[in-house]
Design a protein around this nucleic acid. Structure first.
Length: 311
DNA sequence: AAGTCGGGGCT
DNA sequence: AGCCCAGACTT
């Protein structure tokens, strides 16, 4: 969950997730559907599918015993070099170093590397450095403290903006501070303009139910439930609908302008394999954030309607 | 090496 | 509005 996602964002998801799947077996026994529902809104949904698959692999290939060696961990889907080492260090006390965004920034400043935080060459150099610096004879407790300390140093002291160098335990030999570059390193990434796309989402509604479509497992929002999409309003079959407020959803690599079009059922295109869900049931599915937003808007307007018609 | 894959917090 | 976050995986 924490891959590319801030701790404050994860906490609620993490607690709900563990309440439902308290151990590897319960996660392995769950449906992908249920796992994605718990991930709904968190993003990077391949992480959920990979975690689910990894749990099943641990049950089948490791007899339910989580492997502790980094070489074994990286073979599990969704676990790369840094996450493998983090698990090995935290859970098993293995002297394996991590290299996440925080550690990367700390090292670039400490070494005085005037470059953007990108590229295979930099990656290779920094991995060599962390392997060189990790305390090889640390106890389990020390590995936990060291690993957590490395991340906290980057997050709380060697922060992205306004680093608190006066609090830094390694300020005395920090190359960036020495040269007054602590606010310059790392250099900004070369920025590229993100393309913008447009889509119309057809929201078929009938008798308090909505028609949803399960997306393919690969690609954007893989395995989640969504509304069928069309290039333009005129492309939506079944006559006129009611336009709902359009909004924009920002991805890492493009911006999506979404125009929801409310259509009245029950007649819907048969070739789309749509399924009907009562509003409350729909909100319990694995939904991308914008789809959840649309459904909540509809639910709120229906609630509004009920309140008004009562008076 | 570059692109894909979300959503939100912070400035 | 832009940047980046407890990155991994595919092309």
């Amino acid at each position: 969950m924490l891959q590319q996602t801030q701790v404050s964002t994860v906490i609620d998801y993490y607690q709900r997730f563990l309440a439902s799947f308290p151990d590897v077996k319960s996660l392995a026994d769950a449906s992908t559907e249920a796992v994605l529902a718990h991930w709904s809104g968190l993003g990077y949904y391949a992480r959920a599918r990979n975690l689910h698959k990894a749990a099943r692999m641990v049950m089948e290939e490791f007899a339910g015993q989580f492997p502790g060696a980094p070489e074994a961990l990286v073979r599990l889907p969704g676990i790369g070099r840094s996450t493998a080492n983090a698990i090995a260090a935290f859970a098993f006390g293995v002297p394996a170093p991590i290299l996440d965004g925080n550690v990367k920034r700390v090292l670039m400043r400490h070494l005085g590397i005037e470059a953007p935080p990108t590229g295979a060459a930099l990656e290779q150099r920094l991995w060599a450095v962390v392997h060189d610096r990790v305390p090889a004879d640390a106890t389990h407790a020390q590995m936990i403290a060291y690993t957590q300390g490395m991340m906290d140093l980057g997050n709380m002291v060697c922060a992205r903006s306004k680093p608190a160098c006066q609090l830094c335990p390694v300020a005395s030999d920090c190359e960036a501070l020495h040269r007054g570059l602590q606010n310059v390193i790392p250099l900004p990434k070369p920025k590229k303009t993100v393309p913008e796309r447009e889509t119309v989402m057809a929201v078929w509604q009938h008798d308090g139910q909505l028609a949803l479509q399960k997306r393919p497992d690969t690609g954007i929002w893989g395995g989640l439930w969504s509304f069928p999409e069309y290039p333009a309003v005129d492309d939506v079959p079944g006559g006129k609908g009611q336009l709902l407020p359009a909004f924009m959803h920002v991805f890492t690599h493009f911006k999506l302008h979404i125009t929801p079009l409310l259509m009245q059922g029950p007649n819907i295109p048969q070739d789309l394999s749509l399924q009907w869900f009562p509003l409350a049931d729909a909100l319990a599915l694995g939904l991308p954030q914008p789809i959840r937003r649309i459904i909540e808007t509809i639910a709120a307007s229906q609630q509004e309607y009920r309140l008004q018609s009562r008076t």
